[in-house]
Design a protein around this nucleic acid. Sequence first.
DNA 1: CCGAAAATGAAAACAGTTTTCGTAATCCAG
DNA 2: CTGGATTACGAAAACTGTTTTCATTTTCGG
Lengths: 171, 171
Amino acid sequence: MVPVKKFRELDENLVRQKEAAFADFIQRKGLKTTRQRNTIIATFFRLRGHISVEELLNQVKQVNPRIGYATVYRTLHLLVESALVEERRFGDGLARYEGHSDVEHHDHMICLECGEIFEFFNPRLEALQESLAEENNFQIFRHRLELYGACKDKDACQKRKARGNTAAGAE
Amino acid sequence: MVPVKKFRELDENLVRQKEAAFADFIQRKGLKTTRQRNTIIATFFRLRGHISVEELLNQVKQVNPRIGYATVYRTLHLLVESALVEERRFGDGLARYEGHSDVEHHDHMICLECGEIFEFFNPRLEALQESLAEENNFQIFRHRLELYGACKDKDACQKRKARGNTAAGAE
DNA sequence: CCGAAAATGAAAACAGTTTTCGTAATCCAG
DNA sequence: CTGGATTACGAAAACTGTTTTCATTTTCGG
Ligand SMILES: [Mn+2]
Ligand SMILES: [Mn+2]
Ligand SMILES: [Zn+2]
Ligand SMILES: [Zn+2]
């Protein structure tokens, strides 16, 4: 029987890999290595999920309170440019960032009741999109698919949904 | 042979239908009928495509130059609330609005080169989404699917794409 | 070390949108 | 028809998330 990898360990390896990749990117671009940037990316890569700028800054400030919004924004732009991180917008007005997990590309289901975000990937769906694009003589570079709704298994989400939703006035 | 319906005529009927529906909505909500709102919705429903607030205001001003942003924004909110209009965000920072055309629901392909927007609808795609949601025990209220890429048939879009796209620096 | 180049952080600027507030229009009860 | 409470208007101010500016500090190859 293959031993189960310890989760934390695996994660740390991945994180270090990403930190190295970013260092590489910085060097290739002729930019400079700074303490602030290191703090920011180290913090970011150790967070899970879809992180807003404010969330990240709060975490970062616990390491170095002098770091401000500007540097966080600037570093996130670099991370996106380096293709280590993707920007997401789920319609609440905030940009969110995720270092793409094990799955390279994935789409999202967003629970409007509890805010939870499920990730999924389906090859048939991807293929179908391609074939539809083909029909329209269109070449896809990237796409975004988001399903908004409610967790079926969580009581809270079902109850809240049952109340507030008549027909018209739903966000 | 069935006579071909004159396009303009058909459209006008639809527009009047929508104007009436909005009037209804206003009344049901106990709001007041105003000249400005009438101008705005009359203008909006006669425009095609995915209209930004600024575009709409410009058109509106040609009828009544005293109308300002505030009223346009407010009226668009009412239109959305009435479910006669949908808000779209294609990632350029602007809200866009469309009075849904003949097709109730549809998704979008957006050419990053020329900005053109193609609409499409595919039942298999919709069904597949449903079944994926089902698997995750998720109930879809609405979804958004956007394919970003380039027109294949337009020379301009292909050329521009060929130049600017190495790997990293693409929006 | 030097010094050019790049980065930082606080604050100002920005863009799109929303809110405020004084005035004007609507519309129903009388 | 009004009167008058209610709703809407428009200009300007406020707001939110993000970007830019600018004076100062840090980095790093020579
Ligand atoms: Mn994700
Ligand atoms: Mn559309
Ligand atoms: Zn939920
Ligand atoms: Zn195009």
